[in-house]
Simulated assay, not measured.
Amino acid sequence: MPRLTLALILPLMLSGPAPSRAQETLQRQELYTENIAGMRLHLRQVRGAAGEGRAILLLHGARVAGVGSFDLPVAGGSFAADLAQRGFDVYLLDVRGYGDSARPVQLEQAPSAHAPLVRSNEAVQDIGAAVEFIRQRRKGQRVALFGWATGGQWAGHYASLHPDRLSALIVLNSLYRGSTPHALIGKGSRMEHPAQPGRFNPGACGAYRLNEAASLARPWDDAIPEADKSVRRDPQVAQAYAQAALASDPGSGARAPASFRSPCGAFEDSFYLATGRQQWDASLITAPTLIVAGERDFWSRPEDVQNLAADLVHAGKVQVLRIPDASHFIHLERPQFGRAQLLDAIDAFVR
């Protein structure tokens, strides 16, 4: 078991626009524990002032860390705050190599010098340390686990290994298993090795990748069908998302243009999932599971959703929610484009 310690609790200090009046009643703390390798892990807790609610751990995706993904300091930008307002005790985890968690030493070296960093087995170790840390604070209670995109893949993997520690599993816009062509990351994409079909191309990413703010905007812009992107996406949320992503890497400002590092292990894992390889078995999951996918999502495929639901033979309760007209970034867009429906579904499912 990982050694669990509470290294530091700090009051939240946010830059940028002031939070809304509703969010002012929330409490935020910066918490730290260690994974099994002795690396420091960062969690942010967001909770209401009334006391303990339903515990839920939110897992980020392949590039942007926990705070940037779920707790932006602008109106409509904090999925964590919205959950806390509904009575959840919310935790955000930075997996190793992301945000304020410890970074592998290879992240300080050239991307070409090493294989892709932070594969799913290491991410699952970090999730395990975070879950046990939360359970220790809450007298052994079970924890709900929510994962977005790659975070959902990690969450499902963890749930297959430790189902007894979870009250619920929620997977949003995630891969699982399927042979349907995946243009972004599957066979024939730049992620496939040009000389070895079916194998991941390490040259496409390296140990880690450098991400500029524009690289975050492009896929989000492409996911919005309207010419005026502000119809679905508040410009302040988009700006705060990019700022938080850059701020998550202390060295981002030293590069021109500014960029943040993200480990590439998530992309190798996703490549194999997208090409039909199964990394974990959902039949081992016993926690009630909610599978959510946006109709316009570019990451998960209908086949991933169908196969995951079919394999959840021991989950007790399985619910599949396909949100019409919703994109990959449901939780960061305006309420009427799926965000409100997603919050309602989680609130009703996690009891």
Rank of each mutant, 00 (worst) to 15 (best):
M39L: 08
V318I: 04
L10D: 15
L107Q: 15
F260H: 07
H157C: 12
Q109T: 15
M1Q: 15
V171K: 10
N121P: 03
F267D: 09
V124K: 01
E226A: 10
Y208R: 10
L161V: 10
Q45P: 00
A75S: 15
S248L: 00
T150W: 12
W154P: 00
R351K: 14
D297F: 09
R119L: 09
L332Y: 08
V313I: 15
A256G: 03
A242Q: 15
G294D: 03
P116V: 00
A207L: 07
A37W: 00
R190T: 10
R277K: 13
C205R: 11
G316N: 12
M1V: 06
R40L: 08
L10V: 09
H314Y: 08
R277S: 11
A22K: 15
F88I: 05
R137T: 04
A144H: 01
G97N: 14
S20M: 12
A217M: 13
G53K: 05
L6K: 14
L184A: 14
S160H: 04
R209E: 14
L312K: 05
F200N: 12
A115L: 15
G203A: 13
A213S: 12
R255T: 05
P257D: 13
Q196L: 13
A183M: 07
P2R: 04
F298P: 06
Q85F: 05
M191F: 14
V320P: 13
P116L: 00
L59F: 12
P302T: 05
L290Y: 05
S230F: 03
A204Q: 11
A123K: 07
R218W: 05
F146H: 12
N121F: 12
S101Y: 10
A80L: 02
W220N: 07
V171D: 11
T289M: 04
I36G: 02
Y176Q: 02
P288C: 04
R255S: 02
N211S: 04
R209K: 14
Y272K: 03
Q29K: 11
S167Y: 04
F260E: 02
K229P: 00
D304I: 05
G51T: 09
G316M: 08
Q29G: 05
D311H: 09
C264S: 15
F200C: 06
D126K: 03
S160T: 12
A282H: 05
S259W: 04
A75K: 13
A80M: 06
L184I: 10
R86P: 03
S270M: 15
V237I: 14
Q106C: 02
P202R: 15
A293V: 07
E122T: 05
V74A: 07
S15Q: 13
A254L: 08
P2E: 02
M191P: 01
S189G: 08
A247L: 09
V105C: 09
P197C: 02
G147L: 02
V67A: 13
L14M: 14
A348G: 14
I185H: 07
D297P: 10
H331S: 13
S215C: 05
R3P: 06
D228W: 06
D89V: 01
